[in-house]
Design a protein around this nucleic acid. Structure first.
Ligand code: SF4
Ligand code: SF4
Lengths: 135, 135
DNA sequence: TTATATACGACTAATTTAGTCTTATTTATT
DNA sequence: AATAAATAAGACTAAATTAGTCGTATATAA
């Protein structure tokens, strides 16, 4: 319960790697997979998510790879999380994509409002921590 | 990801019910299950966890049930969570029962220390919220 | 033209969470 | 003493989520 996914951990590691190798060549998925000892295919997807979400820029083809778009100081952990996870909410009823919320308690739920507040506070933890702080 | 389990949500609901029905009779698992519209067996287990962890006292037999041991003001959400979940940590390597931590990255993990700090902050959110605040 | 890299979706396997079933025990009531 | 109502606890099943793999297409430097 309350556990970060491996995907998110890999995203933190990858972002960290990009931040620390930001001069000259572009970092590749393979390089990061080797360096962080994580599955290539998973990092690859994480990096693609970074590119789609404007956290990094990708360069295709040989000598290609990724580089960060902003300074580590200006990238917060919540940006990284949002790039790779669509459901990082504390309850089912707060998840964005479930347009038709499925929780049967929704009508009469007494704990929802307090949990929205909890969510806000947890969000804040990630908003307030920048990539620079985890280098 | 980062989602509270239904078990924890049910625990919050049950604790809430106990707090609001604290005069006279003891609340039963059935009563709470009906009132909160949650599966009887699950609330039953939650309440047993409350009793084991001294959050509530149980009375067996006919006319039995549960009552809170402390005022809602003196029960924090973290107490409730700890009573029903043994793994509420943000990463595998912080989980208490995994005596032999299984994460293969443990030796060279660069994100562990920052995540321990994140964990501390998230803990704080639950430590600082009391049952009274969610009534 | 080849080697190296990103892009992306489908698929499978593993793990975790949610829920059910069963049996034993305790105690008030009749 | 018998019965009914309740907690106690563990095994089991089902559902959902997460983790990881595979295959194929596309882009680009050399
Ligand atoms: S409505 Fe209540 S029970 Fe349902 S997901 Fe939201 S908080 Fe949890
Ligand atoms: S060691 Fe690192 S990768 Fe492994 S669980 Fe802990 S934080 Fe995550």
């Amino acid at each position: 319960m309350l556990k970060l996914s491996k995907k998110t951990e890999y995203a933190f590691m990858a972002a960290r790697h990009l931040a620390m190798n930001n001069s000259g060549h572009y970092s590749t998925a393979k390089e990061i997979a080797d360096n962080c000892q994580i599955p290539y295919q998973l990092v690859a997807k994480v990096l693609q998510n970074f590119a789609r979400n404007k956290i990094a820029t990708s360069f295709q083809g040989a000598k290609g790879g990724y580089k960060l778009n902003r300074l580590p100081d200006n990238i917060s952990l919540i940006d990284i999380i949002k790039a790779v996870e669509h459901n990082y909410q504390v309850t089912e009823c707060m998840q964005e994509d479930n347009s038709k919320s499925t929780c049967s308690h929704l009508d009469c739920c007494k704990i929802r409002d307090p949990l929205i507040e909890i969510q806000r506070k947890i969000d804040n933890v990630f908003v307030q921590t920048s990539l620079k702080q985890i280098l």
